[in-house]
Design a protein around this nucleic acid. Structure first.
Lengths: 211, 211
DNA sequence: ATTATCTATAGATCTATAGATAATGC
DNA sequence: ATTATCTATAGATCTATAGATAATGC
């Protein structure tokens, strides 16, 4: 069994050094880059496939179509955030303030850490289509986690339902917005940026860490 | 001269009650609705024209193409915000804190007041293209106004350049983000929402109104 | 005559499928 | 034999233009 370079199937027309990734993952990476920078509808299946190193038709060997790529990217980026949120909701040994801070920090860090601006996927207009309802359910669950942690802070303890919804929108809007603005200065440390955003979120809530 | 209903030119195939708007403004309105809800590339010239009550080809009597519509929508939504910003920058009788608050409030109010979610236009991936550089220059000028007002607040007086840029990104990100999140609850009063966002922006800055 | 609109369509895509091809595996 | 890939293309768009048409204006 020789080291590498031996693969089943017809060779690709354009040979490239082996990235180590599966063909499917290369397609997902290409789609992430193109969808976030040019948009979903503006990105052709040809552009995705050729950036992944294969011809347009070959893409269909791995995915059912463009929609599949977007659906998978959406789910795979929101899932880690939601896992963090669930764990924080269950942790009743820590103050709501500290848990909210950590949720904000990790959310921003997760989305700003990767090579592409995955947060930009969330606001693509096409994502509002029924096809992506699964993503929206998960995203709503994440937003609910923000609301629950906010409701647990001392500063928000006495707010009525409408006021709490307003604060939740402000905090959630901050997170969504800074991820987009991040592309204006992508060289800044994602960790520093994430911590600063979490600080700002607590200030919006009227809360303080360790409270 | 009879009241209405008398117009030069071949009648439209689909007759509709006169909206009072010019054909060009009807096209702009249709484009605003479709670009914000479905996206720019996903919106066809046929969809825009027919929503405006005319056939696809007739659109070219009023605009050079889809790009023109987007360019005009972008400029016309950022221009009023920038006019407010310039006026506030020149007003040295008011504290930087109060002026920053007002800039945030009016920016959110302007974008959330209209029937469509015009703020969503700003984050369309297609807007990053060179074709819309004019919009980006104006938008950068608006962001600079945020930065200058922030620098004038007591809370930010001693920050270095990098720290100030970070705060500016946080405040600007909040504004951009809440405008997007606003679509989750478009029935809420735009004025209340705008004021609450401005309050939140000052808390991020570490400043207080009347400071 | 002027104008606003229409119908028709050329040319350029874009997606998804059909079927051929060139590797390895046994 | 199996697999991954290729080339070729049908069918469905989509944009922008050409040229006809049906009103009013004079």
């Amino acid at each position: 069994m020789p080291p590498t370079g031996r693969k089943v199937g017809r060779p690709r027309a354009q040979q490239r050094p082996d990235s180590g990734l599966s063909a499917r993952d290369e397609l997902l990476g290409a789609a992430a880059e193109l969808f976030t920078s040019r948009g979903y509808s503006a990105t052709t299946t040809r552009a995705v496939a050729e950036r992944a190193g294969m011809r347009q038709a070959t893409m269909y060997h791995y995915v059912a179509g463009k929609e599949d790529l977007l659906a998978e990217l959406l789910e795979s980026t929101v899932t880690p955030s939601l896992a963090v949120a669930r764990q924080l909701l269950a942790d009743d040994a820590t103050s709501a303030e500290d848990r909210l801070w950590e949720l904000c920090r990790s959310d921003v860090a997760l989305l700003c850490a990767g090579p592409h601006n995955l947060g930009a996927l969330y606001v693509l207009p096409e994502v509002q289509a029924e096809r992506f309802a699964g993503f929206h359910r998960v995203r709503t669950e994440l937003k609910d986690a923000y609301g629950q942690l906010l409701a647990g802070t001392e500063a928000c303890a006495d707010l009525d339902k409408g006021e709490l919804a307003l604060r939740t929108d402000l905090v959630f809007g901050l997170i969504e917005g800074v991820i987009l603005v991040h592309r204006s200065d992508p060289d800044r440390s994602a960790d520093v940026f994430a911590a600063a955003t979490a600080d700002a979120a607590l200030r919006i809530a009227g809360a303080r860490r360790g409270g």
